[in-house]
């Protein structure tokens, strides 16, 4: 399990990264935390001609609180984000999701942007980003653009990023009001990939749900936003009947995959149950005024 021979570049700026990515004729892979890329390289499932290591770029590091959003730069380590007071206080759903990501050893290397760009269907960060309506900033040597997270995930390990584009920043808008969040995941062992995972953020107004976002991952090809649930449950008090309805919708909505770890039918059952549990968690949190 040794990687194929590759060239290695270590740019010092985002601009230089984009320039290297734009060079044609060589298949390039960006190396952020490497917690997914390195095993792919070791198994020779990834065979890039050049690996561009973006770990040394200052512009790619850090977390900033803005008035209506929190900005996390691409190469910010997951462990740093998890421990970050801004994330903990203002993005509780992301904090919850991060605690499910890998192990302490992998979070110490794995990055926020790397996980998003990698687009593993069971990844927790993308799932939370979807529920939080995040926005991706991408740059190439010639242009930059913003991609709504809803348009970002295309299929397993494939995103809307062009081959010459690099993810620079992810921007999380901040919700207002009595916010509650819920994150539920079922995996085989504690830190395994999710068989299904659900992220929920909602806002209650005197016990009535005024805003709701539910996303579901792990079960299908990409994380998906369950807008049908959002429409159905808006303006309700999220009682048992509504939760059961949400569970049914989740169960029926998704296009689940089968593998040795769970059948598609089982994944749908799990997804339905986790949806109920996650919404209940978020509701109770909002009611308790913790958020």
């Amino acid at each position: 399990m040794k990687a194929v021979d590759f060239d290695y570049e270590q740019p010092r700026s985002v601009a230089e990264t984009c320039r290297l990515l734009g060079e044609t004729g060589r298949e390039a892979r960006l190396l952020a935390g490497g917690q997914t890329l390195a095993p792919l390289l070791a198994m020779r499932l990834a065979r890039p001609a050049v690996v561009i290591d973006i770990n040394r770029i200052e512009e790619f590091q850090g977390i900033d609180a803005e008035a209506e959003s929190v900005v996390i730069r691409a190469c910010t380590r997951q462990s740093r984000a998890l421990a970050d007071p801004i994330v903990q206080s203002r993005l509780p759903l992301l904090a919850k999701a991060l605690s499910f990501v890998g192990h302490v050893q992998t979070r110490n290397r794995g990055t926020i942007g790397g996980s998003l760009a990698n687009a593993d269907p069971s990844a927790e960060i993308g799932l939370a980003a979807l529920a939080l309506d995040a926005e991706i900033e991408a740059r190439s040597a010639t242009a930059s653009r913003r991609i709504p997270i809803g348009d970002f995930f295309i299929s397993p390990m494939v995103t809307a990023l062009a081959p010459d584009e690099c993810l620079t920043v992810v921007r999380f808008p901040l919700p207002q009001g009595a916010v509650g969040t819920g994150f539920r995941e079922a995996s085989i062992r504690r830190s395994d990939f999710a068989l299904a995972a659900v992220a929920v953020q909602l806002v209650l107004e005197r016990g009535v749900c005024r805003s709701l976002a539910v996303s579901l991952g792990g079960a299908g090809a990409t994380p998906v936003k369950l807008t049908a649930i959002e429409h159905k449950l808006l303006d309700t008090r999220l009682g048992d009947a509504e939760l059961a309805e949400a569970g049914r919708l989740a169960h029926d909505a998704i296009d689940a995959v089968s593998d040795i770890h769970a059948s598609a039918a089982h994944r749908r059952r799990i997804a339905g149950a986790l949806t109920m549990r996650a919404i209940a968690e978020a509701r109770d949190e909002a009611l308790a005024g913790r958020a």
Binding site: Y8, Q10, L31, G34, Q35, A38, P39, A42, D53, N55, Q105, T106, N108, R109
Partner: peptide, 10 residues
């Protein structure tokens, strides 16, 4: 960290 997931050059 896992040293199998980091290249020496890094």
């Amino acid at each position: 960290v896992r040293s199998c997931l980091i290249f020496a050059v890094q």
